[in-house]
């Protein structure tokens, strides 16, 4: 990235928001694996590997995968957030490779939320 000026910051913001917004032409869904030290210690890397394998197997191109830090609830790690176009984000708790596979197959691909592992829906409030 080239050296930025103050004006560039706003442009980057708009560009990122436009690019990351879910849409019909893709990305249609986004899966975030929370990978702070606490998440990794409880198995987030295995969850991420399982997710990548599922995506490769399914040959899907319109699902974005990203990582993020700790969401605060270290005791429920690994945590995964699934966002699908036009739906509220769902946070899944205490994930492992098998649960990730199921969430991918059922929720990401077919839109069926896996309530047994769901912790919450929506987003945290911040100022």
């Amino acid at each position: 990235m080239a050296k930025l000026t103050k004006e560039d910051l706003k442009k980057i913001k708009d560009k990122v928001l436009a690019k990351s917004a879910l849409k019909e032409e893709g990305p249609r869904a986004r899966v975030t694996v929370h990978m702070g030290t606490c998440g990794i210690a409880s198995g987030a890397k295995e969850v991420m590997s399982a997710l990548m394998a599922e995506i490769a197997d399914a040959g899907i191109r319109d699902v974005a995968v990203t990582t993020s830090g700790c969401m605060g609830m270290c005791s429920r790690e690994p945590l995964v957030t699934v966002e699908c176009l036009g739906r509220e984000p769902i946070k899944y708790e205490r994930m492992d490779a098998a649960k990730m596979k199921r969430v991918f197959q059922e929720h990401v691909l077919k839109g069926e939320i896996q309530t047994p592992f769901a912790l919450a829906r929506g987003e945290e409030s911040s100022e």
């Binding site: 990235m1 910051l9 980057i12 913001k13 560009k15 990122v16 928001l17 990351s20 975030t32 929370h34 990203t66 990582t67 993020s68 830090g69 700790c70 969401m71 605060g72 945590l79 957030t81 987003e123 945290e124």
Partner: peptide, 14 residues
């Protein structure tokens, strides 16, 4: 927390 990818400066800027 839990929103941005810490490895991408543009997400922080956004």
């Amino acid at each position: 927390r839990g929103i941005i990818d810490p490895g991408k400066i543009e997400e922080y800027i956004a």
